[in-house]
Design a binder for these strands. Structure first.
Length: 205
DNA sequence: TGCCAGGCCCTCTTTAGGGCCTT
C-alpha cells in the first residue's frame, strides 16, 4: 500500500474527550475526506457517544455539547462504519501520532483494524515551510492562504483543511522539484528527513 | 478527589529540559 500515489489518501481528524486514550479518553467525532488523484471525492462525518459526559473545556473547544452527544450513535457502531470507509487507503492527519493513537484504541475495542499507513501533515509542513510562524493547522492554512469556511476544531472541517494543506504541499513540492508522480512512501520518508537535508530530498530520489 | 500523554526537535544536548502540536 505504501507504493500508492501520494495524491490518493484519506485525511482524517478526531475530536476527543482529551489528549490520551491511555488515560481513558474517547473519541466523540470523526471526520474524514477521500482524496483521489488530487481531488476530494467523498467525506465521512459522525458524532459518537462516548458513554459519559465531556468536560466544559471540550464543549467550548469543539462546540460539541453533551446534548449533541446524547443522541449520537455509540463509538462502536460509528467506528465499525469508519473501518469500512478507510479500508484500502493510506491515511493522513495533522499531528498524526495523536489521531493514530485514538484510531488504534477505538478500533481495538471492536476488534477491527486497517491496512493503510499513516503520514503526518504537520511533520512534512515543518520541513517544507520552515519559515512559517507556527505549524498549527490553523496557522498553516493562514500562511498558505488556503480558503476555509471559518469552522475550526470540528472533525470534518479540520479534515477538509488538512486535505487542502496536503494538496498544497504536493503542489509546492512539484513546483520546487518538478516531481510529477509522488508516492505516499516518499512523503512518509520526507517527514523523517532531517530538516537541514530537505532542500535536496526530491532531487536525490 | 485529584490528576492526567506522547512524539518530535532544538539546544546552553546525549547522565536533560522544555517548546511545539494534537483534544
Amino acid at each position: 500500500m505504501h507504493k500508492q500515489p501520494a495524491d490518493t489518501v484519506i485525511v482524517l481528524d478526531f475530536e476527543t474527550t482529551g489528549l490520551s486514550p491511555d488515560q481513558g479518553d474517547r473519541a466523540i467525532e470523526i471526520g474524514a475526506v477521500i482524496i483521489e488523484q488530487g481531488r476530494i471525492t467523498d467525506s465521512f462525518q459522525r458524532l459518537m457517544n462516548p458513554g459519559r459526559r465531556v468536560s466544559s473545556f471540550i464543549e467550548q473547544y469543539t462546540g460539541i455539547s453533551n446534548a449533541m452527544l446524547q443522541d449520537a450513535q455509540d463509538c462502536s457502531s460509528v467506528m465499525a462504519e469508519f473501518a469500512e470507509f478507510i479500508d484500502g487507503y493510506n491515511l493522513v492527519a495533522h499531528n498524526a501520532s495523536f489521531d493514530r493513537r485514538f484510531l488504534d484504541a477505538e478500533l481495538e475495542r471492536i476488534g477491527a483494524g486497517y491496512p493503510g499507513q499513516f503520514a503526518c501533515s504537520m511533520l512534512i509542513a515543518r520541513r517544507l515551510y520552515q519559515g512559517a510562524p507556527n505549524h498549527r493547522l490553523g496557522g498553516l492554512v493562514e500562511y498558505k492562504n488556503i480558503p476555509t469556511d471559518g469552522v475550526f476544531h470540528r472533525a470534518l472541517a479540520d479534515a477538509e483543511m488538512t486535505a487542502r494543506l496536503w494538496l498544497q504541499m504536493l503542489e509546492d513540492i512539484e513546483l520546487d522539484y518538478g516531481k510529477v508522480e509522488l508516492t505516499f512512501r516518499q512523503l512518509q520518508q520526507l517527514s523523517k528527513t532531517p530538516k537541514a537535508g530537505v532542500s535536496g530530498y526530491f532531487n536525490r530520489q
